[in-house]
Design a protein around this nucleic acid. Structure first.
Lengths: 322, 322
DNA sequence: ATGAAAGCGCTAACAC
DNA sequence: GTGTTAGCGCTTTCAT
């Protein structure tokens, strides 16, 4: 590991000058001669300098660790997020500390721990309903100098850079695809309001109506019955692969193969979805990319650079059930 | 964050003495008065001291980071592992750096990077076939003072503490369950030799035979045909839920509901398996626990304490397909 | 058995 | 614009 002292020696300047050039902290960039800066930057690159976050943050009285709070699900979405976050964090030279929890109580604990540990920043994906109390906790953390970016959460109650998914778009994509497949009747098993609304809106644009069912065991039976009775092409959209998988089996048991007259489309592209027979058409959410972006934004914030919110577009994966 | 200086003050001793007591490094434990040690230990506990790994390892010229190499799969197994590792690492005060890769080439790169970064230890789950060359790489890393524990890998070629799964036992559990259910004919779609062997061995003990099929699309058709033709109770064991899910759908399409005459049991308990209809009976592997154990062992090794290998027992999850 | 002092790599305050 | 100096929390000689 090459260190500042070696670059200082190689470039002929003192350690602090090198530090000022190479330190990502922008508020002290002003007072360096352009040529000096250029030379140092170049030698650093040539010698493959990587900052020692350890020493950097020891000095700052902080931990060079990105804390991450994710819902405790053992599915592909979480795996994707973990991969994206890990990849980007590694690239920036930050290690990570993951907590997997789902309740607000544990969220509060996470925030407290992270404050005590003086982690340099956090990425959180609160799965619970973010209410006034939660919003206050978040605001408090940030007002005390805490750095934070949110993933996939309701963002109306607080002001924190956010990386989310465009659920409304996902719903529209699903409707569009089912329309293309020539469906004449539509059903949605709901779960996430925005997806439902996107789905319904797109159908409405096409002059179509749709049956909305809540996520209950009853709904599955009702949907299967409706499919059996109707002779028309039916398009079913479930707002999670979990539900699609269940319906997939139920339809087969009722003698209907998804993809023939009855079309079925899920959401999430879970690991097993492609292995169903027939394989499930679904909407993929780019959570790996979301994880990368979240880290990039957090690092920006840590070094006092501005960061903006984004919403990522989901993507249709066409397989056999449509 | 309470630091050594505060404990020193509170206990009336100097910082180095406190350090010697509290530092987990065992080779300097000798020269402290028992009463002193006790007093310091107690005050540390009372004041909730947590070591600053940052400062500790800055001094040691290392990074207080556990590197983790995991196969790049977005399934529940990986999620479980990540959760277990994260939980235990957090408990020990170590942050983590995950890499998700599958090839030996990337494994080599990971080992090189981790050496350059001076991470204090690594946990690796090599998914590729570990050959002589890979074994040499591993031995080399360890001989240079690298600390490492292996997860779920072939462990014949090198000497590194290992946390694995008892696949043979998993196969036996599956056979046992199918026998209990009264199956008279048995099929296995193989994938992992130990699981196959455990399955076959248990059946043999019971005086039963079994058809062994490789994992190909052809196998699925052959199995379905055999099920259709036979009038007897059939037990099918696939060595991964992935295959079970496919067969599940194929059986349904052929008019056979898994769980009735034809019994089906998978392996891994993936997230979606419980959501199939009928829900899949499967073998759960305790990867969260494996992750925790791997970290505990690694921390032992980092502080020069001995660590032993273990193999964890998988567990039957009975649902509807048997 | 205990303490004083130095130093890990870096940043920040202050001089020049 | 650049260099000197001190110090983050801890471990490790080296004295005593």
């Amino acid at each position: 590991m090459v260190k500042l002292a070696e670059i200082a020696k190689a470039s002929g300047f003192s350690i602090p000058v090198v530090s000022r050039v190479l330190s990502p902290n922008p508020n002290i960039e002003a007072k360096i001669a352009p040529k000096t800066r250029e030379l140092i930057l170049e030698t650093a690159k040539r010698m493959k300098y990587r900052p020692n976050r350890n020493a950097e943050f020891l000095k700052r009285g902080q931990n060079p660790v990105i804390g991450v709070f994710l819902p405790h699900f053992r599915n592909s979405l979480i795996a994707d997020l973990v991969m994206g976050i890990s990849e980007a964090a590694q690239k920036h030279g930050f290690p990570v500390s993951f907590a997997f929890e789902t309740s607000f109580e544990n969220y509060r604990k996470f925030i407290e721990d992270t404050s005590g540990l003086r982690n340099c920043g956090i990425i959180t994906y609160p799965y619970f309903q973010v209410n006034q109390e939660a919003a206050k906790l978040i605001e408090g953390y940030c007002q005390n100098g805490g750095k934070m970016v949110m993933v996939n959460a309701d963002k109306s109650l607080y002001r924190v850079p956010h990386v989310g998914m465009d659920d409304h778009c996902g719903g529209r994509i699903a409707a569009e695809h089912l329309l293309e497949r020539g469906c004449e009747e539509f059903i949605i098993i709901e779960g996430i309001p925005e997806r439902r609304d996107g789905f319904a809106a797109k159908l409405k644009d096409a002059g179509m109506d749709c049956t909305i069912c809540p996520e209950t065991m009853d709904s599955y039976r009702i949907v299967v019955d409706q499919c059996r009775k109707s002779g028309r092409k039916i398009g079913i959209f479930t707002s999670a692969d979990r539900m699609a998988a269940t319906l997939h089996g139920l339809l087969l048991q009722a003698g209907m193969v998804p993809g023939e007259r009855v079309k079925l489309i899920g959401y999430d592209d879970l690991f097993l979805s492609r292995h169903l027979a027939p394989a499930l058409t679904t909407i993929f959410q780019p959570f790996t990319e979301a994880g990368r972006l979240a880290v990039n934004k957090l690092v920006d914030i840590i070094y006092d650079r501005p960061a903006e919110s984004v919403a990522l577009k989901p993507e249709l994966i066409v397989r056999k059930t449509t």
